[in-house]
Amino acid sequence: MGSNQGDPEASIEEALQRLEHYGNDLVFDAQSPLYKTEPQGKKDQPWFTNCVVRFKVGSDIWAPAGLLSTLQAVEGKMGREREPGNEGGPRNIDLDLLLFGDVQMQDEYLTLPHPRMLERAFVLVPLRDIAPGFVFADGKTIDQALAALSYTLEGRNISQK
């Protein structure tokens, strides 16, 4: 979850509440602390507030594409507009699906695990908070993935080159 427009912390809280009330087959399980993170790509914008959240889902009800569609519906209800050419730009809310259990897939709609998560300290640091022993499908631990990145962590601020 991330935001850098308006009140980012309130936007993240609103998105979390919307998801928690989506149905009893989508159950909140854990949330990392909030981090202030330097924008990647387009640097001329406010820093983001980011966190990683884990939900337990009814696997017989939810499929990865359905969960992504739900995340995008919540973004839309919160006023997020996806503008071509604004990838990486400012937004009031951004909800990405990073993982769905051990599912690995790639199609035009969804790639799992998220294709850029191993490049992003603002994803890996909070993921480590809620899953410190996480191991990727290739056997790499989350600490090994972080060690491969050039980033700084000062308190709850993450900057990355």
Rank of each mutant, 00 (worst) to 15 (best):
R91L: 13
L99S: 01
G79P: 06
K56C: 15
A63D: 09
P64M: 06
D102S: 11
E75Q: 04
E87H: 08
L99F: 08
A63H: 12
P84W: 02
D94N: 08
N86Y: 10
G101D: 05
D94K: 04
L67G: 02
K77T: 06
G85Q: 08
F100D: 07
G101R: 08
M78F: 09
G66W: 07
L67A: 00
V53R: 03
G58S: 15
R82F: 02
A73P: 03
S69W: 11
L68C: 09
L67F: 11
G66T: 12
L97N: 04
E81L: 11
E75R: 07
L99A: 00
G101A: 02
D60E: 11
D60K: 14
G58W: 12
V74D: 07
W62V: 03
G79I: 02
Q104Y: 07
F55K: 02
R54F: 00
G58Y: 12
Q72K: 15
K56F: 09
L71K: 12
L97S: 01
N86D: 08
E83K: 10
E75K: 04
R82I: 03
E83S: 06
W62T: 06
M78Y: 01
P84D: 04
F100W: 07
R82P: 06
G101P: 00
I93E: 02
G88Y: 12
G101H: 02
D60V: 09
V53Y: 01
N92Q: 09
V74N: 06
E81G: 01
L98C: 00
L95V: 02
N86C: 02
I61Y: 14
V57H: 13
G76D: 15
V53G: 00
W62L: 10
L71E: 10
D102A: 12
Q104A: 11
P64Q: 09
E83W: 04
F100Q: 01
R91Q: 11
G66K: 10
L97F: 00
G66N: 12
D94V: 10
Q72I: 07
G58K: 15
G88T: 08
M78L: 09
Q72D: 09
G88F: 11
A73Y: 07
S69M: 13
K56E: 15
R54T: 01
L67S: 06
F100A: 04
R54S: 11
A65E: 14
V74F: 05
A65R: 14
K77S: 13
D102K: 14
S69R: 12
F55V: 03
K77F: 04
L68Y: 06
A65S: 15
I61E: 02
L99E: 03
V57S: 15
D96L: 00
L97P: 07
G76V: 05
N86S: 00
G76K: 12
D96N: 01
G76H: 11
E83V: 07
P84C: 04
A73M: 11
R54M: 06
G58V: 08
V52Y: 02
A63C: 09
V52P: 02
P64W: 02
L71R: 12
E83A: 08
S59Q: 10
M78W: 08
L97K: 00
G85I: 03
N86V: 00
G89L: 08
G58F: 15
M78K: 04
K77D: 15
